[in-house]
Amino acid sequence: MTHGQAAAPVDRQTGSATQDQITAEIIASHAEQERAERASTDGREPPLTTLDFAPYRSSILRHPTKNPKLVDPETIELYSPAFGERDVAPIEADLTAQHNGEPQGEKITVSGRLLDTRGRPIPSQLIEIWQANASGRYIHQRDQHPAPLDPHFTGAGRAITGASGEYSFTTIKPGPYPWRNHQNAWRPAHIHFSVFGRAFTQRLVTQMYFPGDPLFALDPIYNSIRNQADRDRLLSRYDHDANVPEVSRALLFDIVVDGPDSTWFEDAS
């Protein structure tokens, strides 16, 4: 497992907006998008995640200003890079076993299935995760949060999905952490997920959250997803029966990738 690239820490200034101002912007943006969606006549669904979402301040200069061009995917786009057992060792799925000691925090398992929107499992594909430690600190050199690092926790893992699209990680529940989007800004606890589907069109990077976090309504990143039903799809679900008794609690998180693949044209006829 490689660590962060050598890069100077970036001391970003804290945004001047208050939490109340950001929360009001989030509510106003969601309402405006709902109005626009109802009024839309072109039949195109807006993306699940809004790219132009000013409450997330660093998006202002980075989101494309033009609508994406709708194209028929061709050749290479209809396939995914192939991954397999030679790419990932099984131990990489246990983030609590990468050092010579137990990490601090609550041990959890995060398991689920990788599926496409037709419900077909996606086997033999790569899932990568990364996260903060139990104190809300990333090992990354650019993280300036003064919470302690954990010598027994890096916070990065990989897995290859099984025949039914299943995966399972053992890790530590990450802590929430402050960031500088606005005054008193805190991210809800989350685990970053990167997955490959059946086609490059299905590539997805997202974040998994924990049920009941009081920071949800306050967070511009979580709320860059405009519909509550879609935001809810990023919540893991506690499954008591899947716990490892005396060891770890279990969270379930299924991931559904969307986008045409090489079987699309055959099936669409």
């Binding site: 660590h3 990065a156 997805l204 997202t206 974040q207 860059s224």
Partner: peptide, 15 residues
């Protein structure tokens, strides 16, 4: 099935 929405990769993806 409804698709899982994307989220930003964030600043700390390198590790």
């Amino acid at each position: 099935l409804a698709a899982t929405p994307g989220q930003t990769v964030g600043p700390f993806f390198h590790f």
